[in-house]
Amino acid sequence: MPIDAIITLDTLTCSKESDGTGHSEPYLWPVLLRVDDETLATPQLLSSLHGPDLLARAVVKQDMKRGDSAPVPQGQRSFTFRFSDNLSMHNVILVVALLEHDETPERAVKQGYIAFRNEVPKAVGTLDRLLRLQSNDATVVNGAIAEVKTQVGDAVRAAIKNNLTASEKLRVLLGTLNLDDEIAVSHVRFAQLTTDAGAVLDQAFSTLLVRKTGSSNSTVTDLYNLRGRFQTRRVVRDRCQARVDAVKAAQEQVDAFEREIDELREQFQGAELNALIAKIREEDLDPALAALDAARAALARCRAGGVVVGGTEGVVTA
């Protein structure tokens, strides 16, 4: 049966921060990637999930300092992929960027985030990079990761720059406008949906977000730890899902004709209105209501244990 993979981002902990204006105001850009037999058969080679654009600058905690922990904002916490039966490959990859809230205009931050969540799947989703990211050679993997970071970073910086006004660009050059810092990018890959014995998973994970400086890139200036959980669960098939879908479709049809009648009431009146409504009722609404009644009756028989005609495709999750 299908399996859902649920990735929950729980808390961000600060072990070191170096914001020049005091303590930090970190925010996250998480993107989840799915790579399996089905996605590899598409031109994109993978699928992705991300939080809403309105949370592009959802600060995890104001004035965050060493030793502080805070929950990841709602809307960026939980992501779910559904994997079909009998797949030979099922990878989930978490890519997350950590940034520091400074003075970048809100519109530019939003466009930077849109560039990030669009460019990550493009940068990872080439056959060459996917193969190298799967390599057992750490040098090969690190090379592919570096290429992804460069491609994504260039796209983000370009998007932010292109959404600054001329005066804002001048202030950046003069050092009077302090753009948000890009602290770090990290990733975690999950390649199994069950244990070797077939049990579903429920495991904690963490990933470090580290910024280094210095001539040898060895001085740690910022260090954060993002903790979360990776869980899987088998999807319970609803033998009556086809009937549920039929009821939903029939109800939508009825609602559409009723909206049409409401619109006519705003445009016409009197005998002309009554004639139009009567025509819609006779030709459209009454047959739609009959179809809805039939669909509901078929669903009721199915729930009571009757025969399901036409298959049992569909899933229901808790």
Rank of each mutant, 00 (worst) to 15 (best):
E182G: 13
K149D: 15
I145K: 13
A123E: 06
L131D: 12
E100Y: 09
L98G: 08
A155W: 01
I93M: 15
L87E: 12
Q111G: 08
D128C: 05
V185P: 07
H187A: 15
S88E: 14
N86Y: 09
F116R: 02
Q134I: 08
S167D: 14
A166M: 11
E100T: 02
T165Q: 03
V188M: 13
D137K: 06
H101S: 11
H187G: 12
L98V: 04
S186R: 04
S135D: 04
R129K: 10
D137T: 05
E147W: 05
D85Q: 14
L133P: 03
I114D: 04
F83R: 01
E106V: 00
A108T: 00
L174E: 14
L131M: 13
L173N: 12
G125D: 07
L133N: 10
S186W: 06
N91L: 12
T139K: 13
P121S: 02
R129A: 01
T165V: 01
D102Q: 13
N86M: 10
M89H: 15
D102Y: 08
H187M: 15
L179D: 04
T126D: 03
L94Q: 06
E103G: 06
A115V: 02
V172L: 06
V152I: 07
V188R: 15
A108I: 05
D128N: 12
D137V: 09
E100L: 06
Q151E: 15
Q134A: 15
R82S: 13
S84G: 12
D85M: 11
N163T: 01
V140A: 06
L131V: 15
M89L: 15
V152K: 02
L170V: 11
E119N: 12
G112P: 05
D85I: 06
T165P: 02
P121G: 08
A144G: 05
R157W: 07
A123P: 03
R157C: 04
F83M: 04
E103A: 12
V124W: 11
I93Q: 14
K149A: 12
V96A: 01
